[in-house]
């Protein structure tokens, strides 16, 4: 972290930034994104609908909670895959990366809301005790808290205000959020499942891709 950004920096701001005072005003709802938001949020909405109609089996709350968390992790992985995909000659999805990131944030937010309101019934002392005493919940909460400033600064105004360099540095925290999310998933299980191992491996691979692309570390250069 902290090295000079290079032209091929992997956490560059979205390339479709409008110029200051330019005509088209770009909100966080970029072109084509509405459809992606609708599509991306549909599994969560559908699961919630099934839950309301008692279609989620014996422990509907747990299914809803897990489904929302899993989609948050999935969209983090998809977002992290955008640059590697382009580099290995795949399609360039950079214009959708912000949408993937925000979908991850929304799912994480819903996941936390379900945990706080439905699972723990707003029992503040139980929730605080959980966060302090349970490493997997501490780690999950860290992942969520990292996503908050990233979501807040995901619009064009904030990118301009922060400047590209600072924005990049801030948004590199998504690496930590993804790692924490994958770890949170593995730690909450009684045994490591194939699914949890798959996401951990995916995140590890995507983060390793970032390291390989970097210049060799030179302690004499600052």
């Amino acid at each position: 972290m902290g090295g000079r950004p290079t032209a091929d920096d992997l956490q560059s701001p979205p390339p479709n930034l409008p110029h200051r005072g330019g005509g088209a005003r770009l909100s966080w709802l970029g072109p084509g994104s509405w459809a992606l938001y609708a599509l991306g949020l549909s599994p969560g909405v559908w699961t919630f609908y099934l839950g309301l109609n008692d279609q989620l089996g014996a422990d509907p709350l747990k299914v809803l909670e897990r489904t929302l968390g899993l989609w948050a992790l999935r969209f983090l992985v998809i977002g992290l895959a955008v640059t590697p995909l382009r580099k290995i000659g795949g399609p360039n999805l950079i214009r959708y990366r912000r949408t993937f990131g925000l979908l991850a944030f929304f799912y994480a937010l819903f996941h936390v809301v379900v945990y706080v309101v439905l699972d723990q019934g707003l029992d503040v002392s139980a929730i605080v005790a959980d966060i302090v005493k349970r490493p997997y919940i501490t780690i999950g909460m860290v992942a969520f808290l990292i996503l908050v400033p990233l979501a807040v600064t995901s619009n064009a105004t904030m990118i301009r205000r922060l400047g590209g360099h600072a924005w990049q540095r801030l948004h590199r925290w998504v690496y930590l959020a993804a790692a924490a999310g994958a770890l949170h998933f593995i730690m909450l299980l009684k045994t490591v499942t194939f699914e949890a191992a798959f996401y951990a491996a995916a995140v590890a691979l995507l983060l390793a891709f970032r390291l390989v692309g970097r210049r060799p570390f030179n302690p004499l250069r600052r």
Binding site: G51, L52, L56, A58, P60, L61, L64, L118
Partner: peptide
């Protein structure tokens, strides 16, 4: 990794609103 102070009774309450 988790508290054992409370539990959710399966099928109790109405689905998503089951209380611990």
């Amino acid at each position: 990794r988790w508290s054992q102070a409370t539990e959710r009774r399966i099928g109790e309450g109405s689905g998503l609103l089951a209380k611990r």
